[in-house]
Amino acid sequence: MIVYWLCFILFLTGLYGVITRRNLIKIAISLSIMEFSCFLFLALLGYTKGGEAPIVDPADPVRTYVDPLPQAMVLTAIVIGLATTAMLMAVIIRIYRKYGTFDIREIKNLRG
């Protein structure tokens, strides 16, 4: 049970970073930390005690396996997380080239 709590504390750490930091790169890092905690939480939910990796051995098919469904979902989510992070970093580097800073307080003219 404690590992779920630690996962959630990791999520809260990332959320704290997103809310309080003023540097765009740190906000991106905090977002990916939140992502990682969600992945770990979902993968932990599928763990079964004494389970094996979900790869069937045809010679010995009756064994306990961990749940393959959360693993497949998390696999999709990891790849999409990479796509969002790459997109985010592209936007951030554009903002830096235009404004010369990562500080969100100095980026005022975002509209238009």
Binding site: A43, L44, L82
Partner: peptide, 20 residues
């Protein structure tokens, strides 16, 4: 937690993210 596919994908993705 016996998720080797996730480990492979995560190590590749994390390396690419770090490089970017």
């Amino acid at each position: 937690i016996k998720a080797p596919d996730l480990a492979i994908v995560q190590i590749v993705v994390e390396t690419i993210t770090l490089i970017i």
